[in-house]
């Protein structure tokens, strides 16, 4: 049973708000990702498709299209570096390489403990403050310089340790 009854009911409760069940897809994906460890597993894709009465391949297409959804597990701190035009021109590729060096993972991978993951993403919508990095759904980190990365990672580690009470 990939989705709990509560989760299914939460999705069903959205149906009356839209003319068609399929319109609930983005909302459903957000709910599932929130409650299922930050990513949408293949059996969740099938379950959502069943609830919304659409082809599972349409769900997978949407999950793969938006960088906000993940079809694989990501770290507790998921670092997204925009590598579109403006950010690339302002040093985003260097930021990706810098994070690779500091964390020892490549884009799409996760650190062994599952603490961090890095991903190159499409335009985040803040070209005026390029290059931009976003951690999970938190506010953008703007005009990020290579020199900022170490303190960024260290800050995230400190915050995490505080959160788990170490």
């Amino acid at each position: 049973m990939p989705l709990s009854h509560e989760l299914e009911n939460r999705i069903r409760a959205e149906f009356p708000k839209y003319p068609e069940k399929r319109a609930v897809l983005l909302t459903a994906l957000h709910f599932v990702q929130e409650e299922q460890g930050g990513w949408v597993a293949p059996d969740c894709i099938l379950a959502i498709a069943g609830l919304l009465e659409i082809d599972p391949i349409d769900v997978k297409e949407v999950v793969s299209f938006y960088h906000m959804f993940h079809d694989h597990a990501v770290g507790q701190s998921h670092l997204q570096v925009c590598t579109n035009l403006s950010c690339s021109m302002r040093g985003a590729r260097g930021l990706v390489r810098g994070l690779e060096e500091i964390l020892g993972v490549r884009p799409g991978e996760m650190t062994p403990g599952g603490e961090f993951s890095v991903e190159e993403v499409q335009c985040l919508g803040s070209c005026g403050s390029a290059p931009v990095v976003q951690v999970n759904n938190e506010p953008f980190l703007e005009n990020v310089a290579l020199a900022d990365l170490k303190s960024l990672v260290a800050g995230l580690q400190t915050r995490r340790r505080a959160a788990v009470g170490e």
Binding site: P42, D55, P56, I57, D58, K60, E61, S64, F65, Y66, H67, N84, Q122
Partner: peptide, 21 residues
């Protein structure tokens, strides 16, 4: 039969199938 879709976005898009189909 709906076996094929474009997955991903932008310059990383690719044609693919659903796992097991």
């Amino acid at each position: 039969t709906n076996e094929l879709r474009v997955f991903g976005i932008g310059d990383t898009s690719y044609i693919g199938t659903l796992e097991g189909r």
